[in-house]
Amino acid sequence: MNCLICHTPYNPTVSWRYLLTLKKVDCLCSKCRNALMRIDGEICDSCGRPFAGLEPLHRQGRLCTDCVRWQEDDEWKDVLTKNRSVYMYDEFMKEVVALWKFRGDYAIVQAFQEEFCHEFDRYFDHTFLIVPIPLSAERLYERGFNQAKALAELLALPIHELLHRHHLEKQSKKSRRERLRTENVFQLSEKTSLQDRHIVLIDDIYTTGTTLRHAAKVLLKAGAASVSSFTLARG
């Protein structure tokens, strides 16, 4: 077999466990698998950022200082109930995401399947309404697929495409302050009652959390009981 990411041949470990539980053989070589850093240990209650490796200066009790700032802002307080992410957005993950999302090698999404589902079950369940963060029509045309939707599809649960996004310049080129100031690019794509529904937004990366909060705001306004988010990586 050849590794899905690095293409080098490897021998997947096959044990009795695989035969008995019908567990799928890993599509990554052990080197690439081990290079994907799962978030583990103590994390910020709110944004799911690992405290390990974070300077004590950036921590206040169970929250990181970024989340404290969000909570101090009347406009953004409690907009996002919590975020959880599967992997660290480190150098290796950046390369993998670049290949998958920007180069457009869709097949890579398989590599995340097992851990993405596992972590979802740890923090959420099927009572949540699953809403992928959309791309603008222009961006979708350019990329050919929406990476957030591809991730949501891994969960094998109903997906609700409730949001619509206008086209604006690329988020990644803006600073946090700029992102905060920008108007909300999301709107509800259809009129539905979200009364008493708990929603989990799906996206590829949580960087500052601004995009997710903008989306959450629209959903809360439409009556959602709470909005959380679940992303592949935490920047």
């Binding site: 180069r103 457009g104 090698d105 097949a107 045309y141 050919g144 591809a150």
Partner: peptide, 22 residues
């Protein structure tokens, strides 16, 4: 292949030269 937003079908692509565009 991927569910392609451009052609609306399962669109087959080459993974070998993907670094040069899909």
């Amino acid at each position: 292949s991927f569910p392609c937003a451009r052609c609306g079908e399962a669109c087959v692509y080459c993974r070998k030269c993907i670094k040069m565009g899909r």
